[in-house]
Protein backbone atom coordinates (compact mmCIF):
# COMPACT_ATOMS: atom_id res chain seq x y z
CA UNK A 1 0.00 0.00 0.00
CA UNK A 2 2.77 2.38 0.95
CA UNK A 3 4.73 1.54 -2.20
CA UNK A 4 1.70 2.22 -4.37
CA UNK A 5 1.19 5.53 -2.65
CA UNK A 6 4.83 6.44 -3.10
CA UNK A 7 4.67 5.52 -6.78
CA UNK A 8 1.58 7.67 -7.21
CA UNK A 9 3.33 10.60 -5.61
CA UNK A 10 6.41 10.13 -7.76
CA UNK A 11 4.39 9.79 -10.97
CA UNK A 12 2.67 13.07 -10.22
CA UNK A 13 5.99 14.74 -9.53
CA UNK A 14 7.70 13.37 -12.63
CA UNK A 15 4.70 14.31 -14.78
CA UNK A 16 4.75 17.89 -13.43
CA UNK A 17 8.45 18.23 -14.11
CA UNK A 18 7.92 16.96 -17.67
CA UNK A 19 5.20 19.55 -18.28
CA UNK A 20 7.55 22.29 -17.05
CA UNK A 21 10.28 20.95 -19.35
CA UNK A 22 7.81 21.03 -22.25
CA UNK A 23 7.04 24.68 -21.47
CA UNK A 24 10.74 25.55 -21.18
CA UNK A 25 11.94 23.72 -24.29
CA UNK A 26 11.35 26.52 -26.84
CA UNK A 27 12.96 29.02 -24.45
CA UNK A 28 16.06 26.86 -24.27
CA UNK A 29 16.15 26.85 -28.08
CA UNK A 30 15.73 30.63 -28.21
CA UNK A 31 18.54 31.23 -25.70
CA UNK A 32 20.81 28.68 -27.38
CA UNK A 33 20.31 30.20 -30.83
CA UNK A 34 21.07 33.67 -29.46
CA UNK A 35 24.68 32.46 -29.22
CA UNK A 36 24.63 31.10 -32.74
CA UNK A 37 26.35 32.45 -35.80
CA UNK A 38 23.82 31.45 -38.46
CA UNK A 39 25.13 30.12 -41.75
CA UNK A 40 22.61 31.81 -43.98
CA UNK A 41 19.76 34.15 -43.16
CA UNK A 42 17.74 31.53 -41.26
CA UNK A 43 18.84 31.14 -37.65
CA UNK A 44 17.26 27.72 -37.18
CA UNK A 45 20.13 25.25 -36.94
CA UNK A 46 23.31 25.33 -34.88
CA UNK A 47 26.39 26.51 -36.73
CA UNK A 48 29.02 28.19 -34.59
CA UNK A 49 29.26 29.69 -31.12
CA UNK A 50 29.43 33.45 -31.11
CA UNK A 51 28.59 36.33 -28.83
CA UNK A 52 28.23 38.76 -31.75
CA UNK A 53 24.52 39.18 -31.30
CA UNK A 54 24.88 39.87 -27.58
CA UNK A 55 27.59 42.50 -27.98
CA UNK A 56 25.94 44.16 -30.96
CA UNK A 57 22.22 44.09 -30.28
CA UNK A 58 21.29 47.23 -32.20
CA UNK A 59 23.25 46.57 -35.38
CA UNK A 60 19.97 46.54 -37.24
CA UNK A 61 18.42 49.77 -36.02
CA UNK A 62 14.86 48.61 -36.83
CA UNK A 63 15.04 45.84 -34.22
CA UNK A 64 15.87 48.20 -31.41
CA UNK A 65 13.40 50.87 -32.43
CA UNK A 66 10.66 48.23 -32.65
CA UNK A 67 11.69 47.00 -29.21
CA UNK A 68 11.61 50.55 -27.81
CA UNK A 69 8.17 51.17 -29.35
CA UNK A 70 6.84 48.03 -27.68
CA UNK A 71 8.29 49.01 -24.30
CA UNK A 72 6.78 52.49 -24.60
CA UNK A 73 3.35 51.16 -25.56
CA UNK A 74 3.61 48.47 -22.88
CA UNK A 75 4.30 50.96 -20.10
CA UNK A 76 1.46 53.29 -21.11
CA UNK A 77 -0.99 50.41 -21.50
CA UNK A 78 0.05 49.01 -18.12
CA UNK A 79 -0.39 52.34 -16.36
CA UNK A 80 -3.86 53.04 -17.73
CA UNK A 81 -5.33 49.55 -17.64
CA UNK A 82 -4.00 48.84 -14.14
CA UNK A 83 -5.69 51.95 -12.75
CA UNK A 84 -8.99 51.40 -14.57
CA UNK A 85 -9.04 47.66 -13.87
CA UNK A 86 -8.20 48.02 -10.18
CA UNK A 87 -11.06 50.48 -9.76
CA UNK A 88 -13.51 47.99 -11.26
CA UNK A 89 -12.12 45.25 -9.06
CA UNK A 90 -12.63 47.31 -5.89
CA UNK A 91 -16.22 47.97 -6.88
CA UNK A 92 -16.87 44.29 -7.64
CA UNK A 93 -15.36 42.86 -4.47
CA UNK A 94 -15.99 45.62 -1.92
CA UNK A 95 -19.46 46.76 -2.92
CA UNK A 96 -22.86 45.23 -3.44
CA UNK A 97 -24.70 47.35 -5.95
CA UNK A 98 -27.33 47.09 -8.63
CA UNK A 99 -25.68 46.16 -11.90
CA UNK A 100 -22.84 44.23 -10.32
CA UNK A 101 -23.67 41.16 -12.42
CA UNK A 102 -23.62 43.21 -15.61
CA UNK A 103 -20.28 44.71 -14.62
CA UNK A 104 -18.72 41.30 -14.28
CA UNK A 105 -20.31 40.16 -17.55
CA UNK A 106 -18.92 43.25 -19.28
CA UNK A 107 -15.46 42.50 -17.89
CA UNK A 108 -15.70 38.85 -18.86
CA UNK A 109 -16.79 39.36 -22.49
CA UNK A 110 -13.46 40.72 -23.80
CA UNK A 111 -11.71 37.74 -22.17
CA UNK A 112 -14.06 35.46 -24.07
CA UNK A 113 -13.61 37.21 -27.40
CA UNK A 114 -11.02 35.81 -29.79
CA UNK A 115 -8.26 38.30 -30.46
CA UNK A 116 -8.94 38.33 -34.19
CA UNK A 117 -12.42 39.65 -33.51
CA UNK A 118 -11.25 42.26 -31.01
CA UNK A 119 -8.70 43.47 -33.52
CA UNK A 120 -11.05 43.29 -36.48
CA UNK A 121 -13.94 45.09 -34.77
CA UNK A 122 -11.71 47.95 -33.67
CA UNK A 123 -10.31 48.16 -37.19
CA UNK A 124 -13.87 48.30 -38.53
CA UNK A 125 -14.60 51.15 -36.11
CA UNK A 126 -11.46 53.12 -36.98
CA UNK A 127 -12.11 52.66 -40.70
CA UNK A 128 -15.72 53.76 -40.43
CA UNK A 129 -14.98 56.93 -38.50
CA UNK A 130 -11.73 57.61 -40.41
CA UNK A 131 -9.29 57.53 -37.51
CA UNK A 132 -5.75 57.08 -38.85
CA UNK A 133 -4.07 53.90 -37.61
CA UNK A 134 -0.88 54.15 -35.61
CA UNK A 135 0.57 54.52 -32.12
CA UNK A 136 -2.65 55.75 -30.51
CA UNK A 137 -4.92 53.14 -32.05
CA UNK A 138 -2.53 50.40 -30.84
CA UNK A 139 -2.74 51.91 -27.37
CA UNK A 140 -6.55 52.02 -27.40
CA UNK A 141 -6.81 48.44 -28.66
CA UNK A 142 -4.37 46.99 -26.15
CA UNK A 143 -5.90 48.77 -23.16
CA UNK A 144 -9.28 47.35 -24.18
CA UNK A 145 -8.18 43.76 -23.81
CA UNK A 146 -5.81 44.15 -20.83
CA UNK A 147 -8.38 45.80 -18.49
CA UNK A 148 -10.19 42.50 -17.96
CA UNK A 149 -7.02 40.61 -17.08
CA UNK A 150 -6.19 43.26 -14.47
CA UNK A 151 -9.65 42.87 -12.92
CA UNK A 152 -9.27 39.08 -12.71
CA UNK A 153 -5.88 39.24 -10.99
CA UNK A 154 -6.76 42.02 -8.52
CA UNK A 155 -10.07 40.28 -7.76
CA UNK A 156 -8.21 37.12 -6.76
CA UNK A 157 -6.14 39.12 -4.26
CA UNK A 158 -9.03 41.16 -2.86
CA UNK A 159 -11.35 38.17 -2.51
CA UNK A 160 -8.80 36.49 -0.25
CA UNK A 161 -8.56 39.59 1.97
CA UNK A 162 -10.22 39.67 5.35
CA UNK A 163 -12.75 42.52 5.26
CA UNK A 164 -12.72 42.64 9.06
CA UNK A 165 -9.40 44.49 8.82
CA UNK A 166 -11.15 47.37 7.11
CA UNK A 167 -14.01 47.21 9.58
CA UNK A 168 -11.52 47.37 12.43
CA UNK A 169 -9.93 50.47 10.93
CA UNK A 170 -13.36 52.08 10.57
CA UNK A 171 -14.19 51.17 14.16
CA UNK A 172 -11.06 53.01 15.21
CA UNK A 173 -12.41 56.13 13.51
CA UNK A 174 -10.33 55.98 10.35
CA UNK A 175 -11.97 57.92 7.53
CA UNK A 176 -12.82 55.90 4.41
CA UNK A 177 -9.87 57.52 2.66
CA UNK A 178 -7.50 56.64 5.52
CA UNK A 179 -8.81 53.09 5.59
CA UNK A 180 -8.09 52.81 1.92
CA UNK A 181 -4.67 54.44 2.14
CA UNK A 182 -3.37 52.52 5.18
CA UNK A 183 -5.26 49.20 5.11
CA UNK A 184 -6.90 48.23 1.84
CA UNK A 185 -4.32 49.52 -0.61
CA UNK A 186 -1.21 47.99 1.04
CA UNK A 187 -2.94 44.61 1.19
CA UNK A 188 -4.10 44.81 -2.41
CA UNK A 189 -0.72 46.03 -3.65
CA UNK A 190 0.85 42.62 -4.47
CA UNK A 191 -2.22 41.81 -6.56
CA UNK A 192 -2.05 45.16 -8.32
CA UNK A 193 1.66 44.65 -9.04
CA UNK A 194 0.99 41.19 -10.43
CA UNK A 195 -1.78 42.64 -12.59
CA UNK A 196 0.54 45.36 -13.87
CA UNK A 197 3.21 42.80 -14.71
CA UNK A 198 0.67 40.66 -16.54
CA UNK A 199 -0.74 43.55 -18.53
CA UNK A 200 2.75 44.64 -19.53
CA UNK A 201 3.59 41.17 -20.77
CA UNK A 202 0.28 40.90 -22.63
CA UNK A 203 0.79 44.27 -24.28
CA UNK A 204 4.45 43.71 -25.06
CA UNK A 205 3.81 40.31 -26.62
CA UNK A 206 0.60 41.05 -28.47
CA UNK A 207 0.61 40.50 -32.18
CA UNK A 208 -2.92 39.73 -33.36
CA UNK A 209 -4.88 42.71 -31.98
CA UNK A 210 -1.97 45.03 -32.65
CA UNK A 211 -1.36 44.14 -36.27
CA UNK A 212 -4.97 45.00 -37.15
CA UNK A 213 -4.63 48.50 -35.72
CA UNK A 214 -0.96 49.34 -36.19
CA UNK A 215 -0.93 51.14 -39.53
CA UNK A 216 2.75 51.69 -40.26
CA UNK A 217 3.98 51.50 -36.67
CA UNK A 218 6.29 48.51 -36.12
CA UNK A 219 6.20 46.89 -32.69
CA UNK A 220 8.58 44.12 -31.63
CA UNK A 221 6.15 41.26 -32.41
CA UNK A 222 5.29 42.84 -35.77
CA UNK A 223 9.00 43.05 -36.55
CA UNK A 224 9.47 39.37 -35.65
CA UNK A 225 6.53 38.35 -37.82
CA UNK A 226 7.81 40.21 -40.84
CA UNK A 227 11.35 38.93 -40.24
CA UNK A 228 10.16 35.32 -39.90
CA UNK A 229 9.80 34.96 -43.66
CA UNK A 230 13.38 36.02 -44.50
CA UNK A 231 15.02 34.74 -41.30
CA UNK A 232 14.96 36.09 -37.75
CA UNK A 233 18.35 37.60 -36.83
CA UNK A 234 19.93 36.28 -33.58
CA UNK A 235 19.63 39.77 -32.09
CA UNK A 236 15.90 39.12 -31.72
CA UNK A 237 16.73 35.99 -29.73
CA UNK A 238 19.03 38.08 -27.53
CA UNK A 239 16.26 40.58 -26.74
CA UNK A 240 13.76 37.79 -26.03
CA UNK A 241 16.29 36.04 -23.78
CA UNK A 242 16.91 39.28 -21.91
CA UNK A 243 13.16 39.75 -21.38
CA UNK A 244 12.72 36.17 -20.18
CA UNK A 245 15.77 36.00 -17.91
CA UNK A 246 15.14 39.55 -16.71
CA UNK A 247 11.60 38.69 -15.63
CA UNK A 248 12.88 35.63 -13.77
CA UNK A 249 15.48 37.76 -12.03
CA UNK A 250 12.90 40.39 -11.11
CA UNK A 251 10.63 37.80 -9.51
CA UNK A 252 13.59 36.27 -7.67
CA UNK A 253 14.62 39.64 -6.22
CA UNK A 254 11.04 40.43 -5.24
CA UNK A 255 10.62 37.11 -3.46
CA UNK A 256 13.95 37.58 -1.63
CA UNK A 257 12.81 41.00 -0.42
CA UNK A 258 9.51 39.57 0.79
CA UNK A 259 11.35 36.76 2.59
CA UNK A 260 13.69 39.20 4.33
CA UNK A 261 10.82 41.41 5.38
CA UNK A 262 9.04 38.42 6.85
CA UNK A 263 12.21 37.38 8.69
CA UNK A 264 12.58 40.86 10.16
CA UNK A 265 8.95 40.93 11.26
CA UNK A 266 9.36 37.62 13.07
Amino acid sequence: MKIIKLMREKTLQVFSVLVIVYLMLPLAVIILLSFNKPKGRQNTSWNEFSTDAWTNICRDQTICSAFATSIKIGLLVTLISTIIGTMISFALIRHRYKGRGSTSLMVFLPLATPEVILGASLLALFLNIFIPLGFWTILLAQITFTISFVVVVVNARLAGMDSRLEQAAMDLYATPLQTFRYVTFPIALPGIMAAALLSFSLSFDDYIVTVFNSGRVVTFPIYIWSAAQRGIPPQVNVLASIMFLGSLLLVLIASLIIKRRKAIQV
Binding site: S16, I20, L23, M24, L25, P26, L27, V29, I30, L33, T44, S45, L198, S201, L202, F204, D205, Y207, F220, P221, I224, W225, A228, I232, V236, N237, A240, S241, M243, F244, G246, S247, L248, V251
Partner: peptide, 23 residues
Protein backbone atom coordinates in the same frame (compact mmCIF):
# COMPACT_ATOMS: atom_id res chain seq x y z
CA UNK B 1 6.70 26.46 -10.66
CA UNK B 2 4.23 29.33 -10.96
CA UNK B 3 6.99 31.64 -12.11
CA UNK B 4 8.24 29.11 -14.66
CA UNK B 5 4.72 28.75 -16.04
CA UNK B 6 4.21 32.51 -16.41
CA UNK B 7 7.75 33.54 -17.42
CA UNK B 8 7.50 32.30 -21.04
CA UNK B 9 4.98 35.10 -21.63
CA UNK B 10 7.89 37.52 -21.51
CA UNK B 11 9.74 35.87 -24.37
CA UNK B 12 7.82 36.65 -27.51
CA UNK B 13 5.10 34.15 -28.32
CA UNK B 14 5.87 34.42 -32.03
CA UNK B 15 9.48 33.56 -31.33
CA UNK B 16 8.51 30.61 -29.13
CA UNK B 17 6.18 29.24 -31.78
CA UNK B 18 8.95 29.73 -34.29
CA UNK B 19 11.31 27.82 -31.98
CA UNK B 20 8.96 24.82 -32.29
CA UNK B 21 9.73 24.92 -36.00
CA UNK B 22 13.37 24.28 -35.12
CA UNK B 23 12.52 21.57 -32.59
Amino acid sequence: MLVLIVAPFFASFLLRTNAWKTI
